[in-house]
């Protein structure tokens, strides 16, 4: 496949500009039987995240070396990928790495000292994927679910991808088609703050080689993407908070 990633008019394959995100739509509190949940739709990627806990640790999870039991489980639906029905990935290396990455990302942002001796379970169900950026959607969905559950966090944590055309133009938020067309893909998860520019990056993944001189450009593009996503998440959280406000919460 030899697609031009960006047309002379400056449009990408799916009609976006170079620094445009795919459409994001968010629902909070979608599941009744857990402590926090979210549904996150990013382009054609669909993810449901749910939180159960903090609760008393079950016996199976009590390892003595840890003080906070944080379990992450990721599940890909059999129908999640393009083409044929996939075999369910179970205990595969890839999935294990995915889970470990998520665990480390969120351990850096949850105020762990408040949850000593207790257990927190994060379950992520990936219903449909578009591009290898499942981890982005999973991170963003999990952030929303954690906030919905009322877990103490330092900041929103947002993840985003960026790529590079052969002419050295950075592309924000890579879709599946762009990914298989052969550019490098940079995935980052960061704690963006609105207003100031101090950002701490907690996760970086790179799929291919590219010139070092382009690194700043592509990195910056992905960080801007994280900021944009943060604004979208924040808006969704606020409107949900207003909808679900308990009228007497303030004077109780």
């Amino acid at each position: 496949m030899n697609h031009e990633l960006i047309s002379p008019q400056g449009l990408r394959i799916d009609g976006r500009r170079q620094n445009e995100l795919r459409q994001i739509s968010i629902k909070l509190g979608v599941l009744d039987r857990c402590d926090g949940s979210s549904f996150y739709l990013h382009g054609n990627t669909k993810v449901i995240a749910s939180i159960s806990g903090p609760k008393h640790p079950s016996k199976a999870s009590s390892k003595k070396d840890e003080n906070f039991y944080f379990n992450v489980r990721v599940k890909f639906a059999t129908f999640s990928k393009n083409g044929e029905r996939q075999k369910v990935m179970k205990n595969s290396k890839l999935l294990g790495e995915f889970e470990l990455n998520l665990k480390n990302i969120f351990k850096s942002v949850i105020l762990v000292e408040k949850y000593e001796k207790s257990q927190l379970d994060l379950n992520i169900e990936i219903l449909q994927t578009d591009g290898g950026s499942e981890i982005c959607a999973a991170v963003n969905a999990a952030t929303l679910a954690l906030i919905d559950a009322g877990i103490c966090m330092r900041e929103y944590i947002c993840a985003c991808t960026a790529s590079l055309t052969s002419d050295g133009i950075p592309l924000l938020d890579v879709s599946h088609l762009e990914e298989i067309s052969g550019g490098p893909t940079l995935t980052i998860a960061a704690l963006p703050r609105i207003g100031d520019h101090d950002q701490s990056v907690s996760f970086v993944e790179l799929s291919q080689k590219f010139y070092l001189k382009d690194l700043n450009k592509i990195f910056d593009c992905a960080l801007r993407g994280c900021e944009k996503i943060r604004a979208i998440l924040d808006e969704a959280i606020r409107s949900n908070a207003n909808e679900t406000a308990i009228s007497e919460l303030t004077d109780n």
Binding site: R154, D234, A241, E243, A245, T250
Partner: peptide, 14 residues
């Protein structure tokens, strides 16, 4: 949403 009474400010993480 339409009951009003949104005169308090919601804070978000961070």
């Amino acid at each position: 949403a339409d009951l009003g009474d949104n005169n308090y400010r919601v804070f978000t993480p961070g």
